[in-house]
Nucleic acid binder design. Structure first.
Lengths: 333, 333
DNA sequence: ACCCGCTTTGCAAGCGTGTGCAATCGTTCC
DNA sequence: GGAACGATTGCACACGCTTGCAAAGCGGGT
């Protein structure tokens, strides 16, 4: 099949007139090599186009340098940005990202973790879906690090990075209340992910505390298209809401577009809208959406930094705050 | 550092009461194993949580199953979609994607290819940037497959998948001409990538053929924000264009938003706009942008399929057509 | 009873690397 | 001059796997 011929340390050693160990040591930081040998080795390596075989190195060192990113619908703006931030961070720590797409079925997160084990990844970072406990246990028992981002479910021994969704939802409600709104709605998808549900519950709870009923609608995937359907449902009620908190920005964009083009409502004068994620489109002037920014770079930095820290049983649940970005989709501000 | 303890074939063999070769063969499709042994091995493997070590397997087989995706600004809608399609395709051929981010400096695409070599990747797929010839030669000489997507520059031995940008640009011009436009402009970034320049040249050439001068403006990166600046430049000319072909959709969205909100122009009655890429936002009702769809799935499928085909020196330049998606940003249609 | 052919199995070599251990070499100190 | 010491270096084994090769098992035909 594939005839691949890479140059090995042996050949470099022969050309440099040293032993193979010398070559190995030259490429191992902190190993004992004289300047002269190092010079001759690097020269020979350069001439031959030698590159250390990371597969073999990983085999010996029991440390592959590979980190698996497990994610579905990775072309979603928020996910894509997170993946970008993670790869950048990983590379700056001289690790490398393996990207596993779990779009297909539901057990494919488990499949992905099996891949991670097969390639002896040092760690796996899960951005979507939730694996079975049996397989995460296997990972952890094998000594693999595990990071769950916005997954919310508990996994002893893994690092969990979650947003304070409830608190953000509460702040959203207060912002809308202060803007003079009196009829509140929450626009959700049917995904029922823990973090999405936390936003819904937080918003409803805040409503109750202030003596308001919150209308909740759920439909379809967490995407632009669902926004139109939710708009249809919300704006045809006898009591039209004047404040809508959307579970994320994509949905908010779809809802705003429907509100304007389909129901001739204007934002924010007829209805105030708040989103979540602060995707790039939220700042586009057609939307100018007030929303909560996920601290993407912060999340990525924290996840990656944790990989190199010695295991501490305690304190591996990080809860970060989402920052409210004021734009024009809410009155006042 | 990291104490990783994975179960090895030896342990499975011991538990199953067979030789280590037997377990290896059990996990090698097409190898000669009796049903009875296979059963006992799989059972033991299941119980122990055994997974073949792909690092070691790659070492022996001289085939790692790894394919590197080299890409910068991967959270851009078009790039993200391509990456998603590629990972899906690769996984369906039981290969795995390594994602290398080349956001940083300019030589980093060379660095990325060195990583690909270090991990003995079977192939590299380059979505952005252009590596030095010396390093691509090293890859090819080592037997690595190389795919360049929309890179346009020639590399003997690599698969090159390009769009017919000039032809698309020509069709864009004709579409605008038929819509009754008489004052044409091309909105470009300063990136000057070959494929972007081909769109510009194709559009200008078509204009000349029909006896029209085409105004060209270039500014900044190929992004939403640049659209506003280009709108500023174009709409403050004494002779305001009534037709603008934008080098991509992001830029077109920015330009349309500026046209509407800043210059009170309406699309398509005051100005017709065509974009390129058919990103998701192009179909959002705020934009409803007529644009050219890149055959993303087709590109991904072709790239991945080529990896398994025996080397054919000829015919490794594929030129695909972009499909014109008619929406509402051009009159008539 | 013997031989032939086929399937299955174990042995052992090898893939390219890291690293402990002992040997070598050059220096310094008494 | 000799001993002690630190810096280098080479040898050889280990990592976990695949696979060619030969041996073993087995059934059928003569």
């Amino acid at each position: 099949m594939s005839r691949k011929i890479f140059v090995s340390a042996k050949e470099v050693a022969d050309r440099a007139g040293v032993s193979r160990s010398a070559v190995s040591r030259t490429f191992t930081p902190g190993a004992s090599v004289s300047d002269e040998t190092r010079r001759r080795v690097t020269e020979a390596a350069e001439a031959l186009g030698y590159h250390v075989n990371h597969l073999a190195r990983g085999l010996m060192r029991n440390e592959s340098g590979i980190v698996c990113l497990i994610v579905s619908e990775m072309d979603t703006p928020y996910r894509a940005r997170l993946v970008r931030a993670l790869t950048r961070q990983l590379q700056s720590m001289s690790k490398i990202a393996m990207l596993i797409n779990t779009d297909r079925s539901d057990d494919s997160v488990d499949q992905a973790l099996r891949q991670a084990i097969s390639y002896r990844a040092d760690a796996s970072i899960i951005l979507s879906g939730m694996p079975d406990k049996s397989i995460t246990d296997l990972c952890l028992k094998s000594g693999q690090r595990l990071v769950l981002i916005n997954r919310d479910e508990d996994r002893e021994g893994a690092l969990m990075i979650n947003l304070n969704d409830r608190e953000a939802a509460r702040r959203a409600f207060i912002a809308l209340l202060r803007a003079g709104c009196r009829s509140f709605a929450f626009a959700n998808s049917e995904a029922r992910t823990p973090s999405l549900m936390a936003r819904e519950e937080g918003f409803c709870a805040a409503g109750r505390e202030h003596g308001f009923e919150v209308t909740v609608e759920r439909f379809g995937p967490t995407a632009y298209k669902s926004g139109a359907v939710l708009a249809q449902r919300l704006f045809t009620r006898e009591k039209r809401p004047d404040a809508i908190f959307c579970v994320n920005d994509l949905l908010a964009c779809g809802l705003m577009d429907a509100a304007r083009h389909q129901f001739n409502l204007s934002v924010p004068s007829d209805v105030c809208v708040i989103g979540f994620d602060d995707i790039e489109q939220a700042s586009w002037s057609s939307y100018n959406l007030t929303t909560f920014a996920q601290p993407v770079d912060h999340i990525a930095a924290e996840a990656v930094a944790w990989l190199d820290r010695p295991t501490a049983e305690h304190e591996n649940l990080h809860r970060l705050e989402a920052e409210l970005i004021w734009r024009g989709s809410v009155r006042g501000g």
